[in-house]
Design a protein around this nucleic acid. Structure first.
Lengths: 221, 221
DNA sequence: ATTAATATTTAGACATGTCTAAATAATTTC
DNA sequence: GAAATTATTTAGACATGTCTAAATATTAAT
């Protein structure tokens, strides 16, 4: 059915999808380059190639956007990535901050049979350990009401359901503070001076920078 | 510690190890080419490169053999391959004949952390579903008394512990006959005319060609 | 011990994905 | 709206792993 792509091509598609979720419309060469840590010239080369394969539409100087096919392919990579994350975290007990990097390799394993069996083994999970939704085999996925922890008003509580930024150092930082998916947290006060916020979690007081709080996602309780 | 190798380099090392187990001493260019389904010229190119990296010793026209480092690396790939096989077969219930191909992709995933956790998750298995021994993290592995099913004398029984040939069509053939690791089988008679053999297994009568019986490994009971 | 057959290597080419430097287009700024 | 800045593309190069065809070694046969 679908064409075989190299891991590199898949990474480009994934980046384009991620970027187009934030700022819809087409995605710029430079943005892709900075996400993939490569040069703009390399990105141009690859965009031409992906366009050739009809996985994206691309106009010189005007950026790229996923075609129907490209979108499907990108979604399937996201599905693989997140299912592997669940496995690594829940089944293998690999520390949270190490999961991302390993999943980035595993997501390029080709077999559909493998993915379907993994999905079944894990009990068809709907969300990964970072709280991101897992597309099903047809590419559909559940969205949820979620808001950044920074929006939580003093006195109100929320359930931590996801982390927006998957950078290793950030995840480690959170993990050291005891912050993780599934924990309840209550806003206490906001410091006007530096915009840091104080919370209560499991009878402890936790202070986070405004930026950190923006990257933690909660379901209001 | 160890150098990072590409999947291709790893496949060459693995092939050299497999070949040197059968016919010790050095391994010929052509044999490697035929196992890897590539041209002899490509093999020569790669042997030079691996020799450069001191993973093998290589003399033009004289073949190659693994160095200490190369042997270690090759063994670690075998370990990965077999651990993944156990996972695919036992945990995910992926059909026996599909396992080989998927494991061939998974064996090149880099993370040692992942492998150690997988090993623990599986309970530190000593053998894979084809009955082959799994090297431990230090590269040591258990050997076993084993003999081909074709050597089993009429009236005697054995426990199936491995399959020598991992070709998909052969595995499928066996799987259709109900033959698999861990089953008990009893020799009944040998047909002098075509050298086929008849066995009893789980109250059924099974006939196998002499060649097939040579490729099934048993532990005599 | 030559000749014939086989195995291996060299030479030169190609595809993929990358890069730097230079050229060109688009956007901002004053 | 012309000049300066920023973004993007082109040109030309390189590394990796592959190939075919030709050259050279090795081994087998008579």
């Amino acid at each position: 059915m679908s064409v075989e792509l190299t891991a590199t091509e898949e990474n480009y598609l994934k980046s384009i999808l991620n970027l187009s979720l934030q700022a819809d419309i087409s995605v710029s060469t430079n943005d892709i380059a900075s996400i993939l840590n490569t040069s703009a010239a390399s990105v141009t080369d690859m965009l031409k190639k992906l366009s050739q394969k009809e996985l994206i539409s691309y106009q010189p100087y005007k950026g790229a956007r996923l075609s129907e096919q490209g979108y499907k392919h990108a979604t399937s990579i996201i599905r693989k990535h997140r299912l592997w994350k669940v496995f690594l975290y829940q089944s293998l007990n690999i520390p949270w901050e190490a999961v991302q990097e390993i999943a980035e390799e595993l997501e390029h394993i080709k077999s559909d049979l493998l993915l379907d069996h993994l999905d079944a083994f894990l009990g068809f999970p709907k969300f990964d350990p970072h709280g991101d939704p897992i597309p099903n085999a047809q590419g559909k996925y559940t969205l949820r009401a979620q808001s950044p922890l920074s929006d939580l008003q003093p006195g109100k509580s929320g359930l931590i359901i996801g982390i927006k930024d998957s950078e290793t150092s950030f995840l480690k930082y959170l993990s050291e503070k005891g912050i993780g998916i599934g924990k309840s947290i209550t806003a206490f006060e906001q410091n006007r001076y530096d915009l840091s916020m104080t919370f209560h979690m499991e009878r402890k007081e936790i202070t986070l920078s405004g930026k950190a709080a923006q990257h933690i996602l909660i379901k209001p309780l």
